[in-house]
């Protein structure tokens, strides 16, 4: 379903994704793990047509996101890592707009919106402007929105960031259900190793833009001779804390980027 070969993305002098190759089979739940700034989101952005790769090839359902972006967009849904709601619309309006953009037929749109908003306990607040929501509520709304249509591939970029355990549980139960009943392929990133272990069939670990390991949770533990996935992750990526773009040259690059095209 997803076929990635020698994928590279550079921003100026920084190589965010460096020669990454992996495959995700149809109907598989694939977890993409890595420390902050490892290149997870950049990879997702390239898979979802938001960025064009510097080199390497991507095939989503045998289509190239860079050359057939529209056909690729018809095949996936995504929950972004950072907010992407319109704060000046109500919760219901945000979902309705999404439903229209994703061609959810009018007659099922209303019922699906109600079901998902009820599932994530937002139905009572459907007519409130999203800017009045708390962080957790916004997050739940984003997830409900991402599940509104049933795509072939679902991208979840750190979907549980800032969520309470109840909502996390709802989310993963729902995702597993979608995967089992509708054969939705799931590509997820997370910092919670227990989640990855619970839902993912296969896991890839990325660090400094390079893939350092791939396999089932069991295989990763065996490979690193550790007891838990968390220990395996630390064994693979080290224990130092990473900074995401922060130094002066990064700011310069941002300023330069502002004027590029």
């Amino acid at each position: 379903m997803i076929h990635v070969q020698h994928l590279v993305k550079t921003f100026g002098a920084v190589t965010a994704v460096n020669d990454v190759s992996f495959d995700v089979a149809a109907g598989e739940i694939f977890a993409f793990l890595g420390p902050n700034g490892a290149g997870k989101t950049t990879t997702i952005q390239m898979l979802t047509t938001l960025l064009t790769p510097t080199s390497g090839s991507i095939a989503i359902d045998n289509l190239d996101p860079a050359r057939q972006p529209h056909d690729v967009r018809r095949r996936f849904g995504i929950v972004f890592q950072d907010p992407s709601l319109d704060g000046d619309l109500t919760a219901y309006e945000n979902l309705d707009l999404h439903g229209v953009l994703y061609h959810v037929p009018r007659d099922v749109r209303g019922t699906r919106i109600e079901a998902l908003m009820t599932l994530f306990e937002l139905w009572d607040r459907r007519d409130s402007l999203v800017k009045t929501f708390s962080g957790g509520m916004k997050r739940r709304l984003e997830i409900a929105r991402g599940l509104l249509h049933t795509p072939k591939i679902l991208f979840l970029d750190e979907p549980t960031l800032g969520l309470d355990p109840q909502s996390r549980n709802q989310l993963w139960t729902h995702v597993k259900h979608l995967n089992e009943t509708e054969r939705v392929t799931v590509f997820l990133t997370t910092h919670y190793m227990d989640e990855a272990e619970r839902v993912a069939h296969r896991i890839a670990v990325i660090d400094h833009g390079k893939l350092v390991a791939q396999g089932s949770a069991q295989e990763l533990k065996q490979q690193t001779q550790t007891e838990s996935l968390e220990q395996a992750f630390l064994a693979l990526t080290g224990t130092t804390i990473r900074d995401e773009r922060a130094d002066g040259s990064d700011l310069m690059r941002m300023a330069a980027k502002m004027w590029r095209r």
């Binding site: 938001l50 529209h70 967009r73 319109d86 999404h98 994703y102």
Partner: peptide
């Protein structure tokens, strides 16, 4: 603003020309 607040992404990945 939509870029800053993230909403732009939502429309950019939508299956709409």
């Amino acid at each position: 603003w939509d870029r800053q607040f993230g909403f732009l992404k939502e429309t950019l990945v939508a299956p709409v020309p």
